[in-house]
Design a binder for these strands. Structure first.
Length: 213
DNA sequence: ACCCAGGTGTTTC
DNA sequence: GAAACACATGGG
């Protein structure tokens, strides 16, 4: 299977509408940190609490009480480090960009990405998710799920982040909406894959595996 | 009682 | 450099 074929097949199977809802770029940034190794339902709960507390705002977040923030973040797991990192992100945007996230995200893409990667708690995937979903910049997000699906469908077999990213980006038009759509489709499909063993690279059944006991 | 979730940073061979 | 580990709650 090639990338275009997979893309077409996924399009007929899943819905991408409302994949990453948000009212602001800063909300996407906060959500991107919260969702690390965490189910989205928990992220929505925490985002709701933060919104109610008026903390989905760069300056309010930067000046928030650390202990109180931890309690609000708790349901999303890793709550101490996530609370500290979200607050650190807000402090950075306040100090370096006049509290305007778009000032960071609108730079030349490599510069924006490098700056994001320099912030504690933001790695490859989170940086790219922020560029794509908050900045609407054409950067493809290579979640573990993405390489898993590409590998099992025989489209591209590598677990190296930059390699997978270059593969996808080199085969599609540089279009943020296209990247966002494909990412959402791949993640949804990954959830239906067999997880019986990490070694199973063939079976697409979630609960019962025809290849491993 | 397990395993997993829309990763990242640090430590260790 | 690649592994292994810590981070932590909540749902199936």
């Amino acid at each position: 299977m090639n990338l275009d074929g997979l893309f077409a097949a996924l399009r007929s199977s899943y819905d991408v509408d409302g994949w990453w809802p948000s009212d602001s770029p800063f909300e996407v940034m906060v959500g991107a940190i919260l969702t690390q190794q965490t189910a989205w339902e928990q992220v929505e709960r925490v985002l709701g609490s933060l919104r109610a507390a008026g903390l989905l705002d760069v300056e309010a977040m930067a000046g928030s009480d650390p202990r109180r923030l931890e309690e609000l973040v708790r349901p999303a797991g890793f709550f101490r480090q996530k609370a500290r990192r979200i607050r650190g992100l807000a402090e950075h945007i306040r100090a370096s960009h006049g509290s305007d996230p778009m000032s960071l995200l609108s730079q030349e893409m490599d510069a924006a990405r490098a700056e994001l990667l320099g912030i504690d708690g933001i790695g490859n995937e989170t940086a790219d998710a922020i560029l794509l979903f908050a900045g609407h910049r054409p950067k493809f997000v290579c979640a573990v799920y993405v390489s898993r699906v590409l590998s099992r469908t025989g489209v591209f077999d590598s677990s190296d982040y930059d390699q997978v990213q270059r593969f996808v980006e080199s085969r599609l038009p540089r279009d943020a909406r296209l990247y966002a759509e494909l990412y959402a489709l791949l993640v949804q499909h990954a959830r239906s894959l067999c997880r019986a063993t990490p070694a199973c690279g063939r079976c697409f059944l979630r609960d019962r595996c025809e290849f491993t006991a």
